[in-house]
Design a protein around this nucleic acid. Structure first.
Lengths: 326, 326
DNA sequence: CTGAAAGCGCTAACAC
DNA sequence: GTGTTAGCGCTTTCAG
């Protein structure tokens, strides 16, 4: 048998499809208990399931938020997704996730187009660096969108993230307070998040009359961390602020292979604070971001509710930072 | 201005909506180059985007595969998703991901219902343990579904995974070959995957005349590993086969806190082989699963193409297993 | 090669 | 409370 429709239910229960629709849509007050019970019963028997394409078509828009996400943030994505899902559900919205590959521009663009085609009620872009084309597409679409864990530097575009400048400032200051002076910022990219962190780092260095600043660019990955250790050594740094837990883990592994003791010879401070920080030996001291909250706030924002722009971070002391040896 | 439709394009280009539809749907051969060019041009000017709800409705089904996933497999999900996305795209299918929370039965059920309502062309369930209700729903739906990284023990239900029995057998045998005799299987659950691994483990032990077998149940998490170390100690094991990289990491961390040296005092072999294995100190020797391939094959399977049921695993030697001290 | 017309399954006025 | 009816935006016969 083919997939049942409200028509089938109407036929079997002896009422019109309008009534069936009302009951199934829970338009309370506009139908009697009795008919409702009958209809629900038959619907269940038939294994009826609403065709959301039809609903979306007539309602002009789905009660769904699209979340576009890429491969990079694997570490923290779960928490962000949890926050988004939870808040969305409170607001009666479903969530579909579109995967944009690993910084793959074509896929990323494709994902945006898909979301637009489904006329979702909002689009969330997690850790996505948009290009001009993406932005144009989004803006023209008339549907609200919000960047998550990425701040484009302008209030004109909705976004929820940690305050990256402040985050880097705090972390750097922490390292300085421990007595370090030769501190590097390692593994950040050249885009928004990276530049913001770089600024915070540099401000902290300058404020403490420390120079020159050492920035080693990378792509937030474990491999970048491994690769960058050599430069860290060459620069004679005693402490590094790693762009992500993964970068920190990479630096750590590489350091161990080179017989550099962490933290005795090199202190590592990580940005993110995911479970990765607990897994390594030594455990990584970190500036921990509140990804769950970032997720929740981004839903608020994209749904037009009051929301934070920046979610506070906190420093969690573990075992990878100690004062320099001298 | 409101969202443009083919009607708008038709009006501006002076042709019928039928022709516009044909051009936009690429029904090659059924329109002239000239009209096509004109229509495409106008479509672009208007910023036209197809309404997929309308398409799905008339086509009775979307060219989309739904992937339902839960929080647990964070570690390996990226690879599975990559494989799925890639293969799906080759077959002209989009992918939407539905998040089922953390072994949350209500959410899981909800995700299945959502997928069915969208009349997707196939449903992939990654590391999802279905209950009876889920299975009934799926079977009645008439739409193909396939479990990913989970084998329900029957060929009647589509599934692609590693051969868990074999995987555990190989791993256990490897430990035995290193000279271990007091080996435990740690952190597995009581469901399908867990039981299959348990059987493989037990068969290997028995085949080598080793007994009794020690199985310490858990939920594949880091925390389970931490918690279970005590039991590992109490049982006087010299080697453990951890149910996942996370469990292995947990055991490792806890061991280090208890001054148990790994691998000198305790060898740890991990199941999965994600990047986690490289991050820890020592790096974790593992039975590595080919998640990317599992993803690809599952798409083949759910799309009715020839596909593997079981994807081969391989043992990757790192630094967490050595012969016992004695 | 193109147009007219009939829906896909559902919701939302508008009557009764 | 419930039925009738007109579409939502698109694809697809069937003519021409």
């Amino acid at each position: 048998m083919t997939k049942p429709t409200i028509k089938d239910i109407a036929a079997q229960s002896g009422v019109s499809i309008a009534t069936v629709s009302r009951v199934l849509a829970n338009k309370s007050g506009s139908y009697s208990e009795k008919t409702a019970a009958k209809i629900l019963k038959i619907a269940k028997e038939l294994g009826y399931r609403k065709n959301s394409a039809a609903v979306d078509l007539v309602k002009k828009g789905a009660d769904v938020i699209a979340l576009i996400i890429n491969a990079t943030p694997t570490n923290f994505s779960t928490q962000i997704i949890d926050g988004i899902q939870q808040r969305a559900s409170e607001l009666g919205q479903g969530v579909i996730i579109l995967y944009a590959g690993n910084r793959d521009h074509a896929l990323q663009h494709q994902a945006i187009i898909t979301a637009l085609g489904r006329s979702v009620s909002g689009i969330l872009l997690a850790a996505i660096e948009p290009d001009e084309e993406d932005l144009t597409l989004l803006k023209e679409s008339q549907i609200p969108f919000c960047f998550v864990s990425l701040y484009l530097g302008t209030a004109a575009i909705l976004a929820v993230s940690s305050d990256n400048r402040d985050l880097a400032y705090q972390a750097t200051q922490y390292l300085i307070d421990q007595g370090h002076t030769r501190i590097g910022l390692v593994g950040i990219d050249e885009y928004h998040t990276g530049s913001q962190r770089r600024i915070g780092y540099q401000e902290a260095m300058t404020a403490n009359h420390l120079a020159p600043a050492t920035v080693l660019p990378g792509d937030y990955s474990y491999e970048a961390g491994v690769r960058l250790l050599q430069a860290v050594k060459d620069q004679g740094l005693t402490a590094v602020l790693a762009a992500s837990d993964m970068v920190a883990a990479g630096i750590l592994t590489a350091a161990q292979q080179h017989k550099i003791r962490v933290p005795a010879d090199l202190s590592i401070m990580s940005i993110d604070g995911t479970i990765i920080c607990q897994i390594t030996t030594p455990a990584l001291t970190s500036v921990t971001q509140d990804f769950y909250q970032i997720g929740r706030q981004s839903v608020n924002k994209v749904m037009g509710q009051p929301a934070l722009d920046f979610v506070p971070v906190k420093i969690v002391e573990r075992a990878s930072v100690v004062p320099p040896a001298d």
